[in-house]
Nucleic acid binder design. Structure first.
Length: 621
RNA sequence: GCACCCAUAGCUCAGGUGGACAGAGCAGCGGCCUUCUAAGCCGCAGGUCGUUGGUUCGAGUCCAACUGGGUGCACCA
């Protein structure tokens, strides 16, 4: 389609010299494959847009086989004949390269995402940063960028004082390994009898009790100070807490199919870099005295009235200090082209402050767009904000488990003989949750309800997966001259591992799918059997898939991909119900071949898109 | 008080750089399983795009003010 777009652009440029030629996609495939809105050009030449479209349609000779120009009101549309469209789209989708993927472009992107706090359990809120970040990683790799995946672990701070104090108070004596249930707390659910869960219980209890006994706060502070000054006992517990937390995190990442290149560059990593950061700011003359002796950077000149505090009155560091140190370290260590922070929208001001200070510190490096915040809206509960401290949260694992349970019930009802039920249920249940997140990937906050997040009908992950499974079923039954993708091979590429040096491949290799009967080269015969409006609409939507991926990269959000997957799946359903593939009575056997080719192309696009947002596609469901 | 974000069908949301008729899903009602998976398909019904002005040939989209909601505003992260 790129080839045709270029030819169209060229032809238009010839007739409209000196004008910006912007080519769009029509609203539907019925109108054409490409559209040129004549408004601007008409205005520049003082013509009526509709008249101009008519004139251009008559004048321009495209010299493209199978393409015609049609004036539709103020639009000049390029419309391919059904056969030409089929050839064009299928040729792109059934080639060696993943559809819409780009060559390496030499640019390096680093993405910081997930970044959970040690000793806390993943909530539904963590899904946002984790999966949006993962999706952005996939999309950038797909488009040819080198990507570094960073997990900025919350492994430092006063909460460690809290944890150590709580551990000392309630656990050390009778439950030192945290391997027993506490008699003062609800027992952990069966599948969550982990040290991390009990650590979390300690944390919640401490916060509850310190309300009544403020002296406990001092103990927590003291322990954190001990940790900062290198006290051996504090250090030992910190290391251990970090370990048991990370172990659980990795298990969940594995379940989600997410991974990172490093887990070591968390907040603790930057502790010994803070004083240098402050010195660098000092050297640049950026630090000023603030209230009560705090040290601040004034950023009013860039429109931010709240100054960025870097040093507290007591000389301690704050969040911003760590983020500044992080920014500097990454500049020196990664030499990136762009650094993306996938962090909640409630931190917009904070990120603006940090970016503003970084720009003052090194305007040559931190240019516009060099560091960028990809924010997402907060998830709240029907009765208010989630609070880990208060314990009114929805845990991510509970959501995933519930989704899988609901899917299993449906499988038992509709397809009880399905092989590998548990695995399929896992793919579908988790897919539903992840897809919902991708579809709602936006700045608007939303209220969590079980039925919304785990919906299985309508515009959902399972809807897309279902379309894919139906195709695979057809191919199993009828595609004797099409070799199917090897499932093991697919899994290997589809699931990025949690190993730092693991997965480097962002897209599925489909070398296993070969069209022996219909090679795509100049000798490829005219496609037949695809002139139905349903087939044509499906082809049109498949053609729009690369645009959706590029849009996702530009906007740093996954919604365009999720939405387009729905559109493709819906178009396929139309094709599926209206155009027989295996059961048809074809006078020309090539009709069936070409319809099968369209099926393979669709499956490939669906899998690829699901993969980009982090979802697996079972072959049967 | 100041800043940022948001406001489209009963509900949840789409509507890249203003432009082809404001579209989906859910919920509701009515059809479709002796043919490739009914987790599906088809149809019906449902909207003064928060309000008022402005810019423009053209505004759901841009600007201003207002109303309503969310978030943030230096010694927590």
């Amino acid at each position: 389609m790129d080839r045709i777009r270029k030819a169209f652009e060229h032809a238009l440029a010839e007739y409209l010299p000196g004008q910006d030629i912007v080519i769009e996609r029509p609203k539907s495939g019925e109108l054409g494959d490409l559209a040129f809105p004549c408004f601007r050009a008409a205005k520049a030449t003082g013509k009526n847009p509709a008249q101009m479209a008519t004139e251009l349609a008559a004048q321009i000779n495209l010299e493209l086989d199978g393409a015609e120009l049609v004036a539709a009101g103020p639009y000049l549309n390029l419309k391919l004949r059904p056969e030409a469209r089929a050839r064009e789209v299928l040729g792109g989708l059934l080639g060696d390269r993943p559809y819409g993927a780009a060559e390496k472009n030499g640019q390096k992107i680093i993405v910081e995402y997930s970044s959970p706090n040690i000793a806390k359990l993943f909530t539904i809120g963590h899904l946002r940063s984790t999966m949006i970040g993962h999706g952005l990683v996939q999309v950038h790799r797909f488009l040819g960028y080198d990507v570094v995946r960073l997990n900025h672990l919350g492994d430092w701070g006063t909460q460690f004082g809290t944890l150590i104090a709580a551990y000392k108070r309630w656990a050390e004596a009778e439950n030192p390994q945290l391997d027993l249930d506490f008699d003062w707390a609800d027992p952990a659910p069966d599948d969550r009898r982990t040290p991390l869960f009990r650590l979390f219980q300690l944390y919640v209890r401490f916060h509850a009790e310190e309300e009544k006994d403020p002296a406990m706060r001092d103990q927590a502070r003291d322990w954190f100070r001990a940790l900062e000054t290198g006290d051996a006992e504090a250090r030992r517990l910190w290391t251990w807490f970090r370990e048991i937390s990370l172990k659980e995190f990795l298990r969940i990442y594995d379940r989600l199919g997410v991974g990172f290149d490093t887990y070591t560059e968390g907040e603790a990593f930057y502790e010994n870099k803070l004083s240098d950061t402050v010195k660098a700011l000092e050297a640049k003359g950026l630090l000023q005295d603030g209230e009560r002796g705090a040290r601040i950077v004034d950023i009013e000149d860039v429109g931010i009235s709240t100054p960025c505090m870097v040093v507290k009155a007591d000389g301690g560091s704050v969040y911003a200090t760590r983020d500044l140190a992080t920014g500097i370290y990454r500049r020196d260590h990664y030499h990136y082209d762009r650094c993306i922070y996938v962090i909640g929208a409630e931190q917009i001001l904070h990120m603006q402050q940090v970016f503003a200070v970084l720009k003052k510190l090194d305007p040559d490096w931190f240019t516009e767009g060099k560091v960028i915040h990809a924010p997402f809206g907060l998830i709240s509960l029907p009765d208010g904000k989630m609070s880990t401290r208060k314990g009114n949260v929805i845990f991510l694992e509970d959501v995933l488990d519930e989704a899988v349970t609901r899917v299993l019930a449906i499988i038992e009802e509709k397809n009880p003989d399905l092989p590998r039920k548990t695995e399929v249920a896992e793919m579908l249940g988790i897919g539903a949750v992840i897809f919902f997140n991708a579809l709602n990937d936006r700045v608007k906050p939303f209220t969590f309800t079980w039925d919304r997040v785990i919906a299985l009908d309508g515009d959902t992950g399972p809807y897309v997966q279902y379309a894919h499974a139906r195709i695979m079923s057809i191919l199993r039954k009828g595609a004797s001259d099409i070799s199917l993708p090897d499932h093991a091979q697919f899994d290997q590429h589809a699931r990025p591992t949690t190993q730092p040096d693991g997965d480097k491949t962002a897209f599925i290799q489909y070398k296993q799918v070969n069209f022996k009967a219909i090679p795509f080269d100049d000798s490829t015969p005219e496609p037949v059997g695809l002139d139905s409006p349903f087939a044509q609409e499906l082809l049109f939507e498949l053609a729009g898939f690369p645009t959706a991926i590029r849009l996702a990269q530009e906007q740093l959000q996954l919604a365009p991909i999720a939405r387009h997957l729905i559109v493709i799946a819906r178009a396929f359903s139309g094709f599926y119900t209206n155009c027989p593939i295996l059961k048809g009575d074809f006078e020309d056997p090539n009709i069936q071949r070409w319809r099968l080719a369209l099926c393979v192309a669709t499956a490939r696009a669906l899998r690829q898109g699901l993969f980009l947002i982090g979802i697996e596609a079972p072959e049967e469901m």
